[in-house]
């Protein structure tokens, strides 16, 4: 019954997000068509390429047709699951994205996990003693955290942990070039190494992941902790907590079972928003750490006016975004059964 209601709500949300996704596709397509520079010239054999060769490449890329027709062709390809071909790597964009997406997801999810593990206890601790030293420290860290750009904190972490302390490995890529890759199962190196039982490799990959994940986590701890604190304060001040106290329940039961469970809903909302900002911040972090993810792939393509990868990337990001919002929506129902009763 409850499950059905949740599924129903998720389905409704999904359908209502389809127009926005379609809008993203069209908008990105048009945006890419005004990119300066002619990709046909860019990808011709050389500066000496004759007009015939350029015309041939244009025809091959479908650039000689009017823009509305190009859009229709693109939509037709899209409906067949084809995102076009990257001109820089020569691979279908779908293959490239599939190869590189695990790197980005592994980074983003690890960062989100670190951030949540740090932020929720911090927020709770601050809310339990408002006005105390802990509270002030948490608020100060929050105020500061949103002000440091990810690319600066990433570089400073490299300076401290790689140059000064020597704890972190050379900050380029997911794994040392001399290390052997694990057999590819999921594409997540930590999982693949674990499956292969290669714990030395697992450690190497984890060490490589540490700094970029920390960089991104630092960036999102602030909004998460701030929201936890605010909603925890509201929840601790409510009647049911007062009642629980008057009944003499244990402090742990009051704080964790009653107050936190009720305070978690706004935090979930923020997690959705935070995830979307992390997708954007990925571009910067992947650039700083030469991380071979989808964002750095799209950035390289963008700088060499290669349409297809950028379109595919933006579509992928928007889809992930929609998916995350759906998940958050479903989790709402789990965290607070009242939401599904409508």
């Amino acid at each position: 019954m409850k499950l059905g209601a949740t599924a129903n709500r998720a389905a409704r949300r999904f359908i209502s997000s389809l127009p926005a996704l379609f809008g993203v596709v069209v908008f990105t397509f048009l945006l890419m068509r005004v990119l300066p520079g002619d990709p046909a010239v860019f990808f011709a054999s050389g500066p000496q390429a004759g007009p015939e060769e350029i015309a041939m490449i244009r025809a091959q890329m479908g650039l000689d047709k009017p823009v509305p027709q190009q859009l229709l062709l693109y939509l037709r390809d899209l409906s067949q699951g084809q995102l076009g071909r990257s001109l820089t790597t020569g691979q279908p964009v779908l293959v490239d994205l599939r190869n590189r997406l695990p790197a980005s997801l592994e980074l983003t999810l690890t960062a989100l996990l670190i951030a949540l593990v740090a932020a929720v206890p911090l927020g709770v601790a601050a809310a339990l003693r408002p006005g105390s030293l802990v509270d002030h420290i948490v608020r100060f860290v929050c105020a500061l955290g949103v002000c440091v750009p990810t690319f600066v904190s990433g570089l400073l972490l490299i300076y401290v942990f790689y140059y000064l302390a020597g704890l972190a490995p050379d900050p380029t890529g997911r794994i040392d070039i001399f290390m052997s890759q694990p057999p590819r199962v999921t594409g997540f190196l930590l999982i693949d190494f674990a499956i292969a039982g290669d714990w030395e490799g697992w450690q190497a990959a984890a060490r490589q992941l540490m700094l970029p994940a920390l960089t991104m986590a630092l960036f999102v701890v602030a909004p998460l902790a701030r929201m936890t604190r605010a909603s925890m304060l509201a929840s601790l001040g409510s009647d049911f907590v007062r009642t629980a106290r008057s009944l003499g329940l244990s402090r742990r039961k009051i704080v964790v079972t009653y107050a936190l469970r009720n305070a978690i809903l706004p935090v979930l909302t923020i997690v959705g928003i935070v995830f979307s900002t992390m997708l954007g911040a990925n571009v910067l972090v992947e650039k700083v750490f030469s991380w071979p993810g989808v964002a750095s792939y799209a950035l390289d393509a963008l700088l060499s006016s290669d349409y297809a990868p950028v379109q595919g990337f933006v579509l992928l990001m928007a889809s992930i975004f929609v998916l995350v919002n759906l998940t958050v929506d479903v989790l709402y129902g789990v965290a607070d059964p009242r939401v599904s009763v409508e």
Partner: peptide, 8 residues
């Protein structure tokens, strides 16, 4: 709002 804003 469906775009990751920095990417947009």
């Amino acid at each position: 709002m469906a775009f990751p804003l920095f990417v947009l």
